[in-house]
């Protein structure tokens, strides 16, 4: 409104009659600088102090590479399994009415609210060879706790809500008329899912997958208890940073921290692009 009347040519902000822009922006920038950007810059500065050679010689240590690989494949496996079951849970909670639905819907957020250390000891106790689930699997020769499979289970627990909560609003907004029309034209349930529902929710599902993957990659609390913490087999990068700090190898910890920061940035970029795709698709 007022913007069209007196708009200056290269104004970096639209005029507003509301007060408080300059002070609130200043405080926001300073606070952000002190708590988030400044400390991150210090880490990058310390990393720069290592030089390219020093940086890469730390990252090419077999233990770092091995743990990076373990981190990536366990996080990928956990997000992939969750993509299937998370979609199923989101679908069932949105589309069907059944006793306990509201309770189940609230329970989805449990991993957000439950401290990771609690999840860690609970999962480790459940899946240990003498635990409720572990003792059922032990006769079959399946070991979960203290193996890489344990890492996957813990990552599944902490990242499930990311997928469910990203897909749920999209399922809510799906136009049921399309499915109805397809059904009237003789499409089977599987066909309706594959050709109408799945393409509509795919961008959101991928966003949820990326969010879950990012969360799983950085997880520490729930994994330290259930992983075997055996280097290059059942140890992930956050555990390795902790191990380096315990040995006062600050350079190693810093280099690995920078690597993880870089991976976070790449994932953040991917998530932003995916979200833009979702917005284009659904016009929200």
């Amino acid at each position: 409104m007022s913007a069209t009347i007196g708009r200056r040519q290269f104004a970096w902000r639209q005029p507003s009659i509301l007060p408080g822009f300059a002070p609130s922006l200043t405080i926001t920038l300073v606070w952000l600088g002190v708590i988030v950007v400044g400390p991150l810059a210090v880490m990058l500065w310390f990393t720069a102090g290592l030089g390219w050679h020093g940086f890469f010689s730390i990252l090419s240590r077999p233990r770092v590479l091995g743990d990076l690989w373990v981190s990536v494949w366990t996080a990928f496996a956990a997000s992939a399994v969750n993509a299937v079951f998370g979609l199923l849970v989101a679908w069932v909670l949105t589309r069907y009415e059944f006793p306990g639905r509201r309770f189940a819907d609230a329970l989805v957020d449990l991993p957000f609210a439950l401290p990771t250390a609690v999840a860690g000891i609970a999962l480790s106790t459940l899946y240990a060879p003498n635990g409720w689930i572990g003792s059922l699997l032990a006769p079959l020769g399946i070991k979960i706790a203290f193996t890489p499979a344990g890492i996957v289970v813990a990552m599944m627990f902490i990242s499930l809500p990311f997928i469910v909560r990203t897909v749920q609003p999209i399922i809510e907004d799906l136009e049921y008329e399309q499915e109805e029309a397809a059904h009237l034209m003789g499409a089977t349930g599987a066909e309706i899912f594959r050709r109408i529902i799945f393409p509509a929710i795919l961008p959101a599902l991928l966003t949820g997958f990326a969010l879950a993957f990012a969360r799983a990659l950085g997880e520490y609390g729930s994994i330290i208890f259930i992983a075997g913490n055996k280097p290059m087999v059942s140890e992930i990068l956050p555990l390795l940073i902790m191990a380096q700090l315990d040995q006062f190898d600050y350079q190693g910890a810093t280099a690995i921290g920078t690597l993880m920061l870089f991976v976070s940035f790449v994932l953040l970029l991917a998530i932003n692009l995916l979200q833009a795709w979702v917005r284009r698709r659904h016009g929200g």
Binding site: L32, V36, V37, P39, L40, V42, M43, F46, A214, L217, G218, E219, Y220, G221, L237, P238, I241, M242, L245, Y250, A253, T254, G257, M260, L261, S264, L267, L268
Partner: peptide, 19 residues
């Protein structure tokens, strides 16, 4: 930038304070 801490591992958050 405000959302950034969400995607950073808590262990890295602790490491920053140590540095």
């Amino acid at each position: 930038l405000i959302d950034l801490p969400f995607s950073i591992s808590p262990v890295v958050a602790g490491l920053l304070q140590v540095l």
